[in-house]
């Protein structure tokens, strides 16, 4: 089968899976079944000739599952009621989203067709990457040589996000501190 057919199959599977994951009542089942989407993306990366990305996506999926389950598994969970918007607004939301999808189809028609990318910059990297950087893996040569400043910025963003998460978890409000002081 050609790659496009496989991708169509995996993408429809992922769309159905994500809707099911969002509509499930049990929160643990919901967290686990979001893995359909993540692992589907990983398989699509394999079909799209991006093996390094497939591995990273797979690891991301596992780590995200561990973080989410560790954070939410033991907490007392409320019964989920219907959507937070009322019935009419719910239907309006769905209709607007479908309308956005239909209206955006001409935009996708204007893009270069699937399997035929514009490779102005990439052709230079493919031709000279190995000679200029000495890396056999051209993705690595882009990350660590041609676009090293981008990577530095992205690592800064990652560092800030993790620092933010740790700070949010550590910080306690003044009221709590006062209560603890009174207890002592």
């Amino acid at each position: 089968m050609p790659v496009e057919t496989w991708l169509l199959f995996i993408l429809s599977y992922m769309i159905v899976g994500s809707i099911v994951a969002l509509e499930l009542k049990n929160i643990l089942a919901s967290i686990v079944s979001i893995g359909i989407v993540g692992l589907g993306v990983s398989i699509s990366f394999l079909f799209l000739q991006a093996p390094d990305l497939a591995i990273v996506q797979f690891l991301f999926e596992i780590f995200a599952l561990i973080i989410l389950v560790r954070a939410f598994a033991k907490r007392e969970y409320h019964e989920e009621k219907a959507a937070r918007v009322s019935g009419v607004m719910y239907f309006i939301t769905v209709i607007v989203l479908v309308a956005v999808l239909v209206v955006s189809i001409p935009v996708f028609r204007a893009l270069p067709p699937f399997g035929d990318p514009i490779m102005w910059v990439a052709n230079y990297y493919l031709k000279n990457g190995a000679a200029e950087t000495g890396s056999a893996n051209l993705v690595t040569s882009v990350i660590l040589d041609y676009r090293a400043y981008d990577t530095l910025g992205e690592v800064t963003v990652l560092f800030t996000a993790i620092l933010g998460a740790l700070t949010i978890l550590k910080v306690r409000s003044k009221k709590e501190e006062r209560e603890e002081d009174e207890d002592e």
Binding site: V56, F60, A71, V142, R147, A165, L166
Partner: peptide, 30 residues
């Protein structure tokens, strides 16, 4: 060969997504 440039950019973007998920989870716990 396929285009290596988007692959290189997405590689870091996936990792950043993990950091963002961790931060959102921390906010939700608070």
């Amino acid at each position: 060969m396929v285009d290596p440039l988007p692959q290189a950019l997405v590689l870091t973007s996936i990792v950043i997504e993990l950091g963002i998920t961790a931060m959102l989870v921390a906010l939700a716990i608070k």
